[in-house]
Design a protein around this nucleic acid. Structure first.
Lengths: 247, 247
DNA sequence: CGCGAACTTGAGGCGTGTCAACCCCTGTGG
DNA sequence: CCACAGGGGTTGACACGCCTCAAGTTCGCG
C-alpha cells in the first residue's frame, strides 16, 4: 500500500543505481556529490538480492563478505549465545545497513532474518574499502554509519538497563514512528512487521508483558491495537511516559 | 603492583611512540608492519593526556576531535538521557579505544570518566582518517575495531535482555578475567576499579543486588570477596552458571 | 582519629515471569 | 462446506526475583 512508493514496476529491468534510488539521502551514499555517486554506481553496488519472508539473509558464522542495505522490506537481527540464549538486537527497515558486525572477525556474528518479503542491495566490503580510499567523504561516511550504530546500541542498552516495561514499549514505538516518518510514512498508523515475542526479545520482556502493555496503553487512550495494526493517537502521551520516569 | 609494568619511570621524558609501547599488539596499531608503525609514530599519536581519578576525559556534548586509547588506568563510559536516566555503557582498560561514539554527530555522546589516575594516548580523528588513506591495513583495522565495539555491545544486550542477576554478574567477572589475562595479569586475583553501584548500572541491577550476588558466590565457594579485591577460586564454576541457564 | 562514602544484610513490596485457558485467524483436508 | 489443527494474540492467577527502604558495618581519606 504505502510501500508502492518504493516498489519499481519492473524489478528485473530496474537499473540498480544509488543515484536514481529514492533512498539515497538516507542510505549509504548520503552526502556524496553527483560525480561521487556515479562512482558508487559503477564500482560498488551492482547486485540486489531478494529474501522471502522468514529466510535468512545471513547466519551467524557465515563468512563475511558484504554489507547489505535494505531496499524494501523489513529485517531482524539476532544474537545466539552458545549457551542457547538468543535475543533480537535490532529491526532494520529501508535505507538501513546490515552486516557491520561481521567486519571484525570476518564472520557474521548475528543472524539476519527477513520479516517480510524483502530486497537488499549488496555492498561488497572489499570494494567499499577500496572506493573509500578514493572518496574521502565516503570513507568518512562509513565511519559515521558505524559510529551511529554504536550510539544506537547505547540507546538500547539504556532501555534494557534502566526502564520499566511500559517505558521500554513506549520508547520502542516512538523510535519506530520516528524512523517511519523519516521515510515519509505516517507516524500515527503503524503496521508491526514483528510478533509480540520478537518485540519482547528485543526489549528484554516476555511476549505476555508486551501484549499487556499494548492493552494498557489502549485503555489509557494512547493508541488502539488491532493485532499488528497500531494507531497511535497520542504520541506526546507516549513521550510523557518516558519523561515522567524516575521523577 | 602488577601495573608497574605499564608505568614508565619518567613520564615526562618518555617517548610517545606506538612502536615502543608494550600495548601495540592489543591497541590501535595491532597488525601493522614496522614501517607502517613508524608512520603512525610520526603522523598520528604524539600527545598523551593525564586524567586524575574522578575527572572527565570528555563529556557528552563536547565537540568530537579525537579518539583516545587507554595507556594506563581505567575508565567508565556513561550515557545520560534527557529524561535524567543514566547508565554505564562500558569499562575500558589499557589498550582499549574510547570516543568512537562521537564520529557520527561530531559530538561525544557519552561521558568518559577515569576510575583511577590514568593516561590516554590522543588520536586526532582527522589525522587517523588521513593516515588510513595511506595505509590500507590501518583503514581496515579501524573498521575492525569499530565492528568489534558493535559486537561487544551485542553481548551486553544479551546480558541485559536475557540473564538473571547471578548470570549477569558471572558474565561480568568472566569478561573481566578474560581481558586481564589478555594483558598478562592474573585472572584469579582481581581488583575492581569500580563501585558496586557502577557495576549495577552497567548490568541493569541495583547495587544491593550486586553485593548480594558477590556474597552468594562467596558462600558457594566460587570466589572470595574483600571489598574490591576479588579472588576467583572457581572460574569454571562461574562459567557453569552461564551454561546451565535456560536448560 | 573521625567523618563520610561504600558496602553488607535483612524484611517486605512490586513488577514481571510463568503457566494456563481461551479467542481469533488462516490454511488444510475430508 | 465444515472440521480441525496450529500459530499468534489476549487475559487472568499466582510465583518469584529483584527493588526499596532501612539499619548497621567497614573502608578510605583528611
Amino acid at each position: 500500500m504505502d510501500q508502492s512508493v518504493f516498489r519499481p514496476l519492473h524489478i528485473a529491468s530496474c537499473q540498480i543505481a544509488c543515484s536514481s534510488c529514492n533512498l539515497r539521502e538516507i542510505c549509504l551514499p548520503s552526502g556524496l556529490t553527483r560525480s561521487e555517486l556515479a562512482m558508487v554506481d559503477e564500482r560498488l553496488v551492482s547486485v540486489r538480492r531478494k529474501v522471502v519472508k522468514g529466510d535468512y539473509l545471513y547466519r551467524a558464522g557465515d563468512p563475511f563478505q558484504s554489507l547489505y542495505a535494505v531496499w524494501t522490506g523489513f529485517f531482524k537481527t539476532c544474537v545466539n549465545s552458545k549457551e542457547g540464549r538468543d535475543q533480537v538486537t535490532g529491526f532494520q527497515m529501508s535505507g538501513e545497513l546490515m552486516g557491520l558486525d561481521g567486519i571484525g572477525s570476518k564472520r557474521h556474528e548475528v543472524d539476519a532474518i527477513a520479516l517480510e518479503d524483502s530486497q537488499v542491495c549488496v555492498i561488497p566490503f572489499e570494494d567499499l574499502e577500496a572506493l573509500s580510499h578514493d572518496i574521502a567523504s565516503l570513507q568518512h561516511h562509513v565511519h559515521k554509519m558505524m559510529s551511529r550504530e554504536i550510539v544506537r546500541n547505547h540507546g538500547v542498552l539504556l532501555q534494557l538497563g534502566s526502564m520499566l516495561a511500559d517505558e521500554r514499549v513506549a520508547a520502542f514505538l516512538l523510535n519506530l514512528i520516528y524512523r517511519l516518518e523519516a521515510r515519509g510514512f505516517s507516524g500515527s498508523s503503524i503496521v508491526l512487521r514483528m510478533s509480540r515475542e520478537e518485540i519482547g526479545s528485543f526489549l528484554g520482556l516476555k511476549l505476555e508483558t508486551v501484549s499487556r502493555t499494548f492493552s494498557k496503553f489502549q485503555a489509557e487512550g494512547l493508541l488502539s491495537v488491532h493485532s499488528r495494526q497500531i494507531e497511535v493517537t497520542d504520541a506526546a502521551g507516549l513521550q510523557m511516559r518516558l519523561d515522567s520516569a524516575n521523577c
